[in-house]
Computed example of a mutant assay.
Amino acid sequence: SAYSEKEKLLKAIDVGIDKYVIKPIDMDELFALLEQIVKTKIIGADIIEISGGYSFNQTKKVLVKNGVEIALTKKELAFISLLVKRIGTLVLTEEIRNVVWFGEKVNDPAVRTFIKRIRDKVGAGLIKNSPGLGYKIELKK
């Protein structure tokens, strides 16, 4: 194929694919991925309720606060989507770098500035910080 693995992944992300399996395929990883797809796409609801009047529509890939969609850039949406997929769990800064800035170099101050911009858009209370480790979004209580 004329496309590199990175180009294929970037094309997949553009059309809304949230997982890319690289050959050779690990069967355990494939079955875990299929189980996750069944839970989130087939069985699970499209809307995840988050604390503080927030919700995330997995189908439309939009963050909503009190019924109003919040406009986010692609990278901001990738960040929020990652935290929502792992809701209630700390996502390490290194993983955030790998997902949001795939293949790009980014330093800690740039990540903090990026997250501050998101907090300015969505409200400071949504994204919780564990200094030096990472970030998370809490599930509705």
Rank of each mutant, 00 (worst) to 15 (best):
K60Q: 02
I118M: 05
I48A: 06
V106K: 15
G44Q: 04
N66T: 04
E5I: 14
W101N: 13
V99D: 07
G44D: 07
T89E: 15
N98Y: 05
V100Y: 15
R119W: 11
L139N: 08
V111K: 08
G134H: 08
K39M: 10
A12T: 00
L83Q: 05
I80L: 02
A110F: 02
K141L: 11
L72G: 14
N107F: 12
D28A: 09
L34P: 09
K6Q: 03
F31V: 13
K11Y: 07
K39S: 13
R119C: 11
K128P: 03
I13A: 01
G88C: 10
L63W: 03
K19C: 07
I115S: 02
D26W: 06
W101E: 13
K74C: 03
I118V: 14
F56L: 02
E94G: 00
I118N: 06
I47C: 12
I50R: 10
R117I: 13
L72S: 13
N107C: 10
F56D: 03
L133K: 15
E104V: 09
K140W: 07
S81T: 11
E49D: 09
Y20E: 04
V100P: 15
D14Q: 06
K6F: 05
I25M: 02
P24F: 07
P131A: 07
V122D: 07
L77P: 00
N66Q: 08
L139W: 03
F114Y: 15
Y135N: 12
P109E: 01
E35K: 15
V99S: 06
K128A: 08
E104F: 11
K6S: 02
D46C: 01
E69K: 14
S55Y: 02
I115R: 05
V15L: 12
K65R: 15
K23D: 03
L63F: 03
V38G: 04
V38R: 15
K136G: 07
A71R: 12
N57Q: 02
D46Y: 00
T113E: 09
T73H: 10
I48R: 05
D14V: 01
R117F: 13
D26E: 03
L139I: 08
I80S: 01
T93D: 00
T113L: 09
I87H: 01
T40Y: 09
D18C: 04
S1T: 12
G52M: 14
L126I: 08
G103K: 07
E7C: 05
I17P: 08
L133T: 04
L82T: 06
A32C: 05
E29L: 08
G44E: 03
N57K: 02
D108S: 10
F79Y: 05
S55I: 04
W101L: 14
G67Q: 06
L63G: 01
L72K: 13
K140H: 07
S81D: 06
V100F: 14
D28M: 06
L90V: 07
K60D: 01
M27L: 13
K128N: 11
T93K: 07
N129C: 10
I48P: 02
